[in-house]
Design a protein around this nucleic acid. Structure first.
Length: 958
RNA sequence: GCGGGAGUCGCCCAGCCUGGCCAAAGGCGUAGGGCUUAGGACCCUAUCUCUUAGGAGUUCGUGGGUUCGAAUCCCACCUCCCGCACCA
């Protein structure tokens, strides 16, 4: 059967929308508030974006069916810089972005022209994404939609920021950023050519005194100041004499330029050639030691200060350069002085002697300072010394400290004594701004921060996490860790869309700070959208009253010119839906958004409104590899829906991986699932309501099986183990049904449609949150008039018929065993005889079962107990039976053991007599006879009967 | 380095939390059969080794340990992946 997916899906979407099925208002029912991180509309959504939303939608639909009043809203995050960057690129007619917009995103050309205005970009993709969400069948209450630049939202953010400010959680300070000197703007990944993130590192400058000048050398290893024996300059470089905050320094011109951005006062006062410095002496800080300046060509003017201190005991470059110099053509006088220079060893490391640099240079077979292997040698020495090394006695107050700890202490000491300073430098140079200018590191000294390092704040967040449900639980420790290392975080920036800082209009609230408590805003956006609430007159008092219950309603009504009734209605809306019951997001947001979400909630809201749950999912791979523009493997969601239908895509996304795992998406599985759904739809069309008078064994069995699946699937969804749940719905039902049909067919039954209808109804109901459109269609085919998405979840309380489960298991075992014997022996059967165990064995079996359930599994002890029971002691003649029975029982799952205890009176022979003959005949096409092993008329030519055990009859095949 | 995750029968990937339905689900691939004019799709069967009686042996990164019993719990080690900030 081929079906028209587009038609079916739009049919049901229209009905949902017409009936306003997902528009949720407060009522008398228990609520669930489920939210997902809203999208940033700078591109159409692809399959990868669909994952988080689909998971959340299934979650929402599940709880709706279970009788909760579920609010599942959506909004759009306009705030942020990437869109700004895009607009700039469109304006400058950047070929790459125009091409992407046109050919990858299929934006009409006239629209692209408008994209020089950032809001137009956001507006366009906003609609695009929203349409995709509707097409995916997400059960969203669209009445609450908003964007983060809406005027009322800005008022809300001002309230948030003011509230944090009042609690002294916002501080001002200096902060380094990547910076474009031409645009006078911070740069991030979106602002650079090639989309590189500016990456910088902190060098420690150590100040050596040279006449009236300071020569600063840059290092990552400040501890080596105790082992310095000379300085290196590059004789080719012309150095600058500059004044830095009143001090006279000599540095390379590149360094001087970098210093200009580091919050220092710089003026230029002259030049000096590197060659002129050679042979000159400088004084080592905190010491009377005088050392020489020597030439080395590995010194680069663009790195650090263009001056390097030499620590030949621990730095392979320095060691090698000294060796090279001894053989050089410098003056005899100088060379002889150089020969006197001895490395000073300051770090003790297991596996290294007194001069690690020498050892490693020799081991690597390095012959001069231009050898590229020196890089690797340096890395190895540094790595080992940093993590395993300890400082020696000659490091004075730092002696005995591990290098990894000493580094920061020495840095602080150097700066405090003015022996040192800090230089920030890009490590992945050159980083070019989109305007073409080369970027630098700039220290901003009036930046606003959220003070996430505040101990009390952290403690509160930790407490909130401990009360929260975190799914999957593996991710919990990651949150704990993030809270641990979190420090101040910049919460404002100088350009982009967004809300201005209330007290400093030069700054805009940063996009990771204006998106942390907006879930509360969903409870009022409804009133904004129906025009009952406007930005005018809204101030902090209003939000204080609605969200925190602070203030006086008369006062607020007067200030805002809003009626008491409306204020109370809005307040009730918030109080009904808050707190957030479940927050869904991708795992990339764990170290930032999700953690900030908790931090901001605990800072602003009282404990009863703290979030209850976080659900984190992994990303989506396309055919095993990451989706990326350059790979060309991005599939736009709407295109995929058009080609395959929304439901198959939803299922493929869910079934391809457990929550936290990266989901490997491929179109083959989509088509496979589509066929599966089509088959199921066909089955539903065939089954009909039919009353059945008498339930046969297999009827009771399939009903019990279905019932236990309902329980299993429900629990799986509660834990968001959707893959597992979906798998059971699609496949476990199938294997049970195929056994059922086999049984029914062997009896030539014609009255199974009622049972099939019942089973399919349960199955379709549980499928509905996953594949909502086709499930409605199936539900209709099953003869229902109400919609499944509004109907109930299958009943969990129904009983499981343990006897039916056991007896069908017995049948399966016998058929398996016979097939097994036939396979091994390769005989063609003429006649099959089955022998069930004696009642004596059955009694013994239940005795042993009781022992095992009581925890006794030791064969010897069980045997002893058996022998001490006069009724059962005869079993000692058959220890083999006891042994095998113990093994049988141990290999049963606990549930089956329980069932077996419950059905002591189960008459195997009678059951097999009633049920095995038909199906056995059908399977093996020979007559089957059944005896109990102590029947007097037994036919047992090969003496097989004595091997019979309960639930494991003996078999004779001839 | 710090923190997290993972290593399973040709491949992908379940199972591990809660030890015993586990020689280990499902998908792909492969082989045989059915259907079909053919291809595709679909359906059935097989797919660690041995086995003329339902069994046995060896497997879940490596090496130990706990237990009557370990893919599952504990310890150590090896390998791979991800995050480490002002960016949504």
């Amino acid at each position: 059967m081929t079906i028209n997916w587009t038609e079916i899906e739009s049919k049901w979407r229209e009905r949902w929308s017409k009936n306003k099925d997902f528009e949720t208002d407060p009522n008398e029912k228990e609520k669930k508030f489920i939210t997902v991180a809203y999208p940033y509309p700078n591109s159409p959504q692809h399959i990868g974006h669909g994952r988080t939303y689909t998971l959340a939608d299934v979650h929402a639909r599940f709880y709706r069916m279970r009788g909760f009043n579920v609010l599942f809203p959506m909004a759009f995050h306009y705030t942020g810089t990437p869109i700004l960057g895009m607009a700039k690129r469109v304006e400058s007619n950047d070929a790459e972005i125009i091409n992407n917009l046109k050919n990858l995103y299929h934006v009409p050309e006239n629209t692209i022209k408008e994209f020089i205005e950032p809001v137009k970009i956001a507006d366009y993709f906003h609609e695009e994404i929203k349409t995709g969400m509707i097409e995916m069948g997400y059960s969203i209450d669209w009445r609450r939609e908003f964007t983060t630049i809406d005027p009322v939202y800005s008022k809300f953010i001002e309230w948030q920021i003011n509230t944090l400010q009042k609690k002294n959680l916002i501080i001002q300070g200096s902060h380094p950023v990547g910076w474009c000197p031409k645009d006078q703007n911070p740069v991030s990944q979106h602002d650079t050519l090639g989309d590189v993130e500016p990456d910088f590192t902190e060098y420690i400058l150590i100040k050596f005194q040279f006449e009236e000048h300071v020569i600063p050398t840059a290092t990552l290893r400040p501890e080596t100041i105790f082992g310095v024996v000379n300085l290196w300059v590059n004789p080719e470089i012309v150095y600058k004499k500059i004044s830095v905050d009143g001090e006279k320094w000599i540095v390379s011109s590149e360094c001087a330029y970098k210093l200009e951005f580091l919050d220092k006062k710089i003026s230029y006062e002259g030049e000096i050639r590197g060659s002129d410095l050679i042979g000159k002496s400088v004084k080592v800080p905190n010491s009377d030691k005088i050392i020489m300046i020597l030439p080395a060509n590995f010194v680069e003017s663009e790195t650090g200060t263009g001056m390097v201190m030499s620590v030949p005991a621990h730095a392979p470059f320095d060691y090698q350069a000294l060796i090279d110099l001894r053989k050089s053509d410098l003056s005899y006088d100088l060379v002889s002085k150089i020969k006197e220079i001895q490395p000073i060893s300051i770090i003790e490391t297991k596996g290294f002697g007194d001069n690690p640099a020498k050892e490693i240079v020799e081991r690597f077979g390095i012959s001069n300072q231009t050898d590229p292997k020196l890089e690797e040698a340096t890395k190895e020495v540094y790595g080992k010394e940093f993590y395993e090394g300890k400082l020696k006695e000659n490091t004075k107050q730092f002696a005995g400290i591990k290098v990894s700890f000493a580094k920061d202490r020495i840095k602080d000491w150097l700066i405090e004594k003015n022996y040192g300073s800090i230089l920030l430098e890009l490590t992945n140079t050159p980083v070019k701004c989109r305007c073409g200018e080369e970027c630098v590191v700039k220290v901003l000294n009036n930046q606003w921060f959220l003070n996430y390092k505040d101990k009390d704040w952290k403690d509160k967040a930790i407490q909130c996490f401990s009360l929260m449900n975190i799914l999957p639980h593996e991710i919990r420790s990651e949150f704990t860790y993030v809270i641990g290392w979190l420090r101040e975080r910049a919460c404002a920036r100088q350009h982009g869309l967004g809300t201005k800082l209330p007290w400093d209009k030069n700054w805009i609230v940063e996009s990771l700070s204006d998106s942390v408590i907006y879930m509360a805003y969903y409870t009022i956006s409804k009133f904004v959208n129906d025009k009952r609430l406007v930005a005018e007159n809204l101030g902090d008092e209003f939000f204080d009253y609605i969200f925190l219950g602070k203030g006086d309603i008369f006062e607020i009504s007067k200030l805002t010119k809003i009626s008491h009734d409306l204020i109370n209605e809005i307040k009730h809306e918030f109080e009904y839906f808050y707190p957030v019951d479940s927050r869904h997001s991708g795992r990339d947001l764990v170290p930032n958004h999700l953690t900030f979400f908790v931090l901001n909630h605990v800072a602003i809201f009282p404990e009863n409104n703290w979030p209850r749950e976080i659900v984190v999912n992994g990303s989506v791979l396309m055919n095993g590899s990451k989706m990326s523009k350059s790979m060309g493997n991005i599939i736009p969601l709407r295109k995929a829906i058009e080609d395959y239908g929304a439901d198959p895509i939803r299922l493929a996304i869910i079934i391809s991986a457990e929550l936290l795992q990266d989901a490997d998406f491929n179109m083959d599985s989509v088509s496979g699932l589509r066929v599966k759904l089509e088959t199921l739809l066909e089955d539903c069309s065939k089954s009909k309501v039919e009353k059945i008078e008498y339930l046969e064994s297999e009827d009771r069995w399939i009903k019990s099986k279905a019932q236990s699946l309902v329980v299993q699937i429900t629990h799986a969804i509660e834990k968001m183990r959707l893959r597992e749940a979906l798998h059971d719905i699609l496949y476990s039902f199938d294997s049970d049904l195929s056994w059922y049909l086999k049984r029914a067919n062997s009896k030539n039954r014609k009255n199974i449609f009622g049972i099939l209808h019942e089973i399919n109804s349960i199955r379709v109901a549980m499928l509905s949150p996953f594949a909502p459109h086709i499930a409605e269609e199936m539900w209709e085919k099953l003869g229902n008039t109400k919609m499944i998405s509004k109907s109930g979840w299958p009943d969990l309380s129904e009983k499981i018929d343990s006897r039916a489960i056991l007896s069908e298991e017995l049948l399966k075992i016998i058929i398996d065993d016979v097939a097994n014997i036939l396979k091994v022996t390769k005989i063609t059967p003429q006649k099959i005889t089955i022998y069930t165990a004696s009642s004596f064995k059955s009694k013994t079996y239940h005795f042993i079962l009781g022992k095992i359930i009581g925890g006794q599994t030791n064969m010897g002890l069980i045997m002893k107990d058996l022998i001490s029971n006069p009724e059962l002691q005869a079993i000692k003649k058959n220890p083999d039976f006891v042994q095998k029975t113990i093994k049988d029982i141990l290999s049963d799952p606990p549930e089956i053991r329980k069932f077996k205890t419950e059905s002591k009176e189960f008459n195997e022979k009678q059951f097999l007599f009633d049920e095995l003959l038909d199906i056995g005949k059908k399977e093996f096409e020979v007559p089957i006879s059944i005896y109990s092993e102590n029947d007097t008329d037994i036919y047992d030519p090969k003496g097989k009967a004595r091997n019979a055990r309960p639930f494991k009859p003996a078999i004779l095949i001839e």
